[in-house]
Amino acid sequence: MELNRSTNETGGEFAATRLDYVVDMVKKHGINWARRNSLWPMPFATACCGIELMATGASRYDVARFGSEAMRFTPRQCDLLICAGRVVMKMLPVLQKIYIQMTEPKWVISMGACASTGGVFDTYAVVQGIDQFVPVDVYVPGCPPRPETLIEGIMAVQRIVAEDGVKTSKERGRGLGLVVQPPRQPVQLGTGFEQ
């Protein structure tokens, strides 16, 4: 960890430096650590993924282990919007309204194939990916994703918080745009292929 102030080895300003050190630690890591382990999700559950979201909150998967069990149904108390399920023409303005109402800093998970791309519903009514109209931080694949995958998605948001720090959406710009993938070994191609 890098500190931008002199440490006590340089001598002289011991007390002040020590305080600075603490303040720096808290600023740099403490707040982020506290924040990323108490993400309060706003469950924007529209369809099937909502049932897996409920299962994630229930006893077996117990999302409380990751500090995200405090689902608040008012957007003003939340910092993580989980969009679970397909969003259709009539629902998109509602999603945007809820996104605007959430206080900064805020993150968005697009849960499931339908929210991310439209999924199997390539029809007149379904918005083909909410990221066209609302900024998204993490995409969780699956139709619907298993609770483990959603938890991995929440952990990805935690990594973003750890890396990005507490910035408002404006400061973060386009964001990291992480896609959660099941961990796997890179495919080894044979000779004659460019790696």
Partner: peptide, 26 residues
């Protein structure tokens, strides 16, 4: 009227015609 046979499955672009909310604007 979407279920009429002369209405296309993918619609006539209604699903794309929304305001875009970016991080800057929100």
């Amino acid at each position: 009227y979407p279920l009429r046979k002369d209405y296309p499955l993918h619609g006539k672009g209604e699903r794309e015609a929304f305001e875009v909310l970016t991080r800057d604007s929100a």
